[in-house]
């Protein structure tokens, strides 16, 4: 890749990021929906712990899970299913005639997605602090930001891989996204310490970055109250490895599935 290509890709990335940020801000109903709705579910899970008489630290676990679930929803629907939406809107072909790399477009989408989801997650943090009075351990902001960054990198790299898979899918994309919501919350211990799943939790964490990411963020914020799965440092290393793996997978599968979709004539096929 020469300097000119790189400059083009950076511009494409910025352009796609701009669309994601401005597009989200232009649609207040989506903003409210994405910011408020996941928190209602989170409130229900906090109240379940309260109904069971669990220690307060578990309520904090559920609040953190609720906040992080907004990122997973964005990864699935905003990254994974994005190319499916584009196909339904009849503009997927524009992505493929553009002179820039598809990875640059997906990266822009991911960065814009993280920014907007972080903005929305402020509501969840506010609910946690002012309504449920959650407490977190004093933690270094730089350390927390680093863990957050590596977690998001792994999750959005996975989202890029999903988006390449969904090039081939029609309505299955919708159902796959639905199937990857609650089952992933369970396997990742989104609302409870993943350790509670025993061996199943360990296996799930080894293949799904969401579980490790949630556990790492909890360990950073709650210390021993997080009931962590493995030491935090190991989790960060594993998340970084997941990022590299999924970025490579996304690149390879995007190229392969683009070819396959073209060959089978599915790239512009709507209403499948």
């Amino acid at each position: 890749m020469n300097g000119r290509d790189l400059a083009l890709d950076v511009r494409a990335m910025r352009a796609r990021m701009y669309v994601r940020v401005v597009g989200s801000l232009c649609e207040p109903a989506w903003l409210i929906g994405d910011a408020v709705l996941p928190n209602l579910g989170m409130c229900a899970f906090v109240l379940l712990y309260r109904a069971l008489g669990a220690p307060r630290s578990f309520e904090t676990l559920a609040v953190l899970g609720g906040i992080l679930s907004t990122y997973w929803i964005n990864v699935l629907w905003g990254m994974g299913a994005q190319l499916y939406w584009e196909k339904q809107q009849g503009q997927l072909q524009l992505y493929f005639v553009a002179p820039c790399s598809r990875m640059a477009i997906l990266t822009g989408m991911a960065v814009g997605g993280v920014l907007m989801t972080t903005l929305r997650s402020v509501i969840g943090i506010a609910v946690g602090i002012w309504i449920f009075h959650i407490r977190v351990a004093p933690v270094g902001l730089a350390e927390l930001f680093g863990i957050f960054l590596v977690t998001m990198s792994a999750l959005y790299a996975l989202g890029m891989t999903f988006s390449s898979l969904f090039l081939l899918y029609g309505r299955e994309a919708w159902h796959v996204c639905n199937a990857l919501t609650e089952p992933m919350y369970f396997l990742s211990g989104m609302y409870f310490p993943i350790r509670a799943l025993g061996a199943l939790g360990a296996v799930a964490a080894a293949v799904i970055p969401l579980g490790l990411g949630v556990d790492a963020m909890r360990q950073a914020l709650l210390g021993s109250g997080a009931h962590g799965l493995i030491p935090l440092r190991l989790e960060v290393v594993a998340l970084a490895a997941f990022t590299m793996l999924f970025l490579w997978l996304a690149r390879v599968s995007l190229a392969h599935l683009e070819l396959l979709a073209k060959r089978e004539g599915r790239l512009t096929q709507r209403w499948q």
Binding site: F45, L52, A62, Y185, G189, M190, F192, L197
Partner: peptide, 20 residues
């Protein structure tokens, strides 16, 4: 696909219960 979501939601509750 139809069963995954309701079963998983039940299992999330079970996970929360196991934890406490």
């Amino acid at each position: 696909y139809s069963l995954l979501r309701p079963i998983a939601t039940g299992l999330i509750l079970a996970g929360m219960y196991w934890a406490v």
